[in-house]
């Protein structure tokens, strides 16, 4: 197991965003975290990264305590939801800056080529389009070849060609044994990519398991309909126990 999350709770003032989340993430798997706006997806991902400090619970990443340590983040590549950079910096400089903070060897070139942003390397970030900034955001997360990738809406602003490139890249990284956690609103992308779907609703894990299992449980043909079924309460997680960790096979293996 790469990431172990136990009973994570987080409130912002009176608003309870995460109400006790238990999840395990394994190597060589892609996990899609789905859920309506405000369901706690971003807060959950930020908790793993130490950006949000949970009120309660335990987070272990590769054996390190995610609530205390900071070195464990050298093993995580992160794409934040909003790609905003200091306006005066050039693309090259921001790559150098993150490399110098991380003190790790970085390999930006292959991702710069993949997303075709070579010609923007010497331009200031304020002059770039939203899509190009998102590509820079992706390069920054991928260039350390980290074992864990956390991507918050990685396809925002990307055109279809680059979305396909990203999808292929993620599948390739998965085959190399990386653990990838993605949030997205594009359900067909989640369906094509993920080994597992984690559906969050009002701070609870409403469903956790494979897409096939979800389709079977909800008697639907695609993820869109299945999600609608969850939202309409047609799948009651507590009765059907889809939330119960279906990874016992992996744990025992």
């Amino acid at each position: 197991m790469v990431i172990h999350v136990e009973n994570i709770q987080k409130s912002f003032g009176k608003q309870e965003v995460l109400k006790g989340i238990d999840l395990d993430f394994f190597e060589g798997q892609i996990y899609s975290i789905l859920g309506p706006n405000g369901s706690g997806k971003t807060t959950f991902m930020k908790s793993i990264l130490g950006l949000v400090k949970p009120n309660n619970g335990k987070i272990m990443v590769g054996g390190s305590d995610g609530m205390k340590d900071h070195e464990y983040r050298s093993n995580i590549g992160y794409v934040p939801q909003i790609a905003r950079f200091p306006e005066n910096l050039k693309v090259n400089e921001v790559i150098d800056l993150v490399t110098s903070i991380r003190k790790q060897p970085s390999f930006p070139q292959e991702f710069v080529e993949l997303f075709q942003i070579e010609s923007f390397l010497n331009q200031r970030l304020k002059n770039l389009s939203g899509g190009t900034r998102q590509k820079v955001n992706l390069v920054l997360a991928l260039m350390f070849k980290s074992d864990i990738l956390i991507l918050d809406e990685p396809t925002t602003g990307l055109d279809p060609i680059n979305t396909i490139r990203l999808k292929e890249l993620l599948l390739q990284l998965k085959s190399e044994g990386k653990t990838i956690i993605v949030t997205t609103h594009i359900l067909h992308l989640a369906e094509e990519l993920s080994d597992d779907i984690i559906f969050l609703l009002e701070g609870h894990v409403k469903y956790h398991g494979s897409t096939d299992r979800l389709l079977k449980l909800s008697h639907t043909k695609n993820l869109e309909e299945a999600i609608a079924a969850i939202l309409q309460g047609e799948i009651d997680s507590e009765e059907e126990t889809p939330v119960v960790n279906i990874y016992n096979r992996k744990k025992n293996a």
């Binding site: 990264l49 130490g50 950006l51 900071h70 070195e71 464990y72 983040r73 050298s74 995580i76 992160y78 934040p80 909003i82 905003r84 950079f85 200091p86 993150v98 903070i101 991380r102 003190k103 955001n137 920054l140």
Partner: peptide
């Protein structure tokens, strides 16, 4: 917003 990206690094 950039702080978010930098604080997600091992620092």
């Amino acid at each position: 917003d950039f702080a978010e990206l930098l604080l997600a690094q091992p620092i």
